[in-house]
């Protein structure tokens, strides 16, 4: 993923932590461990957090939801909108599993506050479907076997979608670099790169 994207994530993460919300669950839990016996940590309004209306477009439909200020975009997509194709893997902006498009640009939805998406247009993996019909990029991932377990696949495809919209005819090296922000532990990388290149070629025809 490009550098500026990562930088913006770090400040977001600090912001989330700053307001003391429980969103960074695992991280907060571990952070607390050494002081478990102390009762010093008292998150403000735990469980009673104020909710705010969020209006944004998701997969071309206008959506209105009430969200906590600390909720990430990934949480809202998965838990409130049941768009479970977006995966939370590291919740830390490191792996790309939660990649969605925000106004056409790839973002890590685990590192973005949902309220920051107000007025924006979000596309998730579910948004690439036209009825039951898959798009050429998804088709290429099937044909080139660009996956194994498939858990990182929605994130890979969304990152590839953004890459191809920015650079419709990338070289192999450009694809490898462009996709390097999305971890795949099964390491289907050569086939993921093949899939993206094949999709670019389909586009050419």
């Amino acid at each position: 993923m490009d550098q500026d994207k990562k930088h913006s994530k770090i400040s977001r993460r600090k912001f989330i932590k700053g307001i003391g919300g429980g969103v960074v669950g695992g991280a907060v839990l571990l952070h607390n461990l050494p002081v478990l016996s102390e009762s010093a940590i008292e998150p403000a309004g735990a469980g009673l957090e104020q909710k705010y209306p969020l209006i944004f477009k998701v997969n071309a439909k206008t959506v209105r939801v009430l969200v906590e200020s600390s909720a990430t975009l990934a949480d809202v997509l998965r838990d409130q909108l049941q768009l479970t194709g977006t995966k939370i893997v590291c919740n830390h902006g490191e792996c790309g599993g939660c990649t969605v498009l925000l106004n056409g640009k790839a973002v890590y939805s685990c590192m973005m506050l949902a309220l920051d998406a107000a007025g924006s247009e979000v596309t998730t993996i579910e948004g690439l479907l036209n009825g039951e019909e898959i798009n050429p990029l998804q088709q290429a991932f099937i044909e080139k076997d660009g996956m194994q377990c498939g858990f990182c696949t929605p994130g890979q495809i969304m990152a590839a979608q953004a890459l191809l919209s920015k650079n419709p005819h990338p070289s192999r090296a450009e694809v490898m670099t462009g996709m390097s922000g999305n971890l795949c532990r099964c390491a289907a990388y050569p086939k993921i790169v093949d899939s993206v290149l094949a999709a670019a070629e389909t586009h050419l025809k």
């Binding site: 768009l83 479970t84 194709g85 977006t86 995966k87 939370i88 998730t124 993996i125 579910e126 690439l128 479907l129 898959i134 998804q138 088709q139 991932f141 099937i142 044909e143 076997d145 996956m147 498939g150 858990f151 696949t153 929605p154 495809i157």
Partner: peptide, 21 residues
């Protein structure tokens, strides 16, 4: 021979049912 995986469609569409889904 090269045979495409049966679970390809469910995985590229985000429809595959992982435990937390």
């Amino acid at each position: 021979k090269p045979v495409i995986r049966q679970d390809g469609y469910s995985k590229v569409t985000g429809k595959a049912r992982f435990a937390d889904d």
